[in-house]
């Protein structure tokens, strides 16, 4: 097995905010209704977090569980632990209607950091960032592609599809250019 490579190999850009492509992270799409028996325990087994409520992301070190839709969760964990995570889900949700798939390789993940990180996102997403609560996961778009992001320390973590990683990096770089601060 070869070493997994993130879409952009960890590209970075330093403007008025810092842009870093990170990963690969392990990611599992889990589709199940919240009332499925054992769901909370299954999620806890994989991420060590509670089952996230609507639009929330529960973070636990390098693991997290995010609410994606009324019947979809995104579980984040170390890349190497995905197989174990899937096995745990299969075991805990055996017999319950659900779907769990590895999407680690289908995603690209970026960090936007610095005191003005919000200004980078404000140029790309139709989201009222001032009203984005800590621990809120917002699915929206970044210019012309789908993106999900949440505030994390002094900055944001943004997830996009892998195939458009180059485009997203281009957007973030353009938006973070020194001299184009919004305030």
């Amino acid at each position: 097995m070869s070493e997994p490579v993130s879409a952009l190999g960890g590209a970075t850009h330093q403007g008025f905010a810092t842009i870093r492509e990170i990963g690969p992270l392990g990611m599992i799409t889990l589709r199940a209704k919240p009332d499925v028996k054992g769901l909370a325990a299954a999620v806890k087994a994989v991420t060590g977090t509670a089952l996230p409520a609507q639009r929330r992301i529960e973070v636990n070190g390098d693991r997290a569980a995010g609410w994606m839709s009324p019947d979809e969760y995104l579980l984040i964990l170390p890349y190497a632990d995905v197989a174990a995570g899937l096995a745990a889900l299969a075991a805990k949700l055996k017999g319950e209607h659900h779907l769990a798939v590895d999407v680690s390789d289908a995603r690209a993940v970026f960090r936007i950091e610095g005191a003005k990180a919000d200004q980078v996102l404000a140029k790309l997403s139709p989201v009222d960032l001032a009203r984005l609560e800590p621990g809120e996961l917002r699915r929206s778009r970044a210019a012309q592609v789908a993106a999900a992001f949440w505030k994390d320390g002094e900055g944001y973590t943004l997830v996009s599809f892998r195939s458009v990683a180059g485009y997203v990096m281009g957007l973030l770089t353009h938006s973070a250019q020194t001299g184009s601060e919004l305030a």
């Binding site: 609507q54 639009r55 839709s69 009324p70 139709p126 917002r138 699915r139 929206s140 778009r141």
Partner: peptide, 9 residues
């Protein structure tokens, strides 16, 4: 999901 989405979303 409770988001007040704008048309482009």
């Amino acid at each position: 999901c409770g988001v007040k989405a704008e048309e482009t979303e």
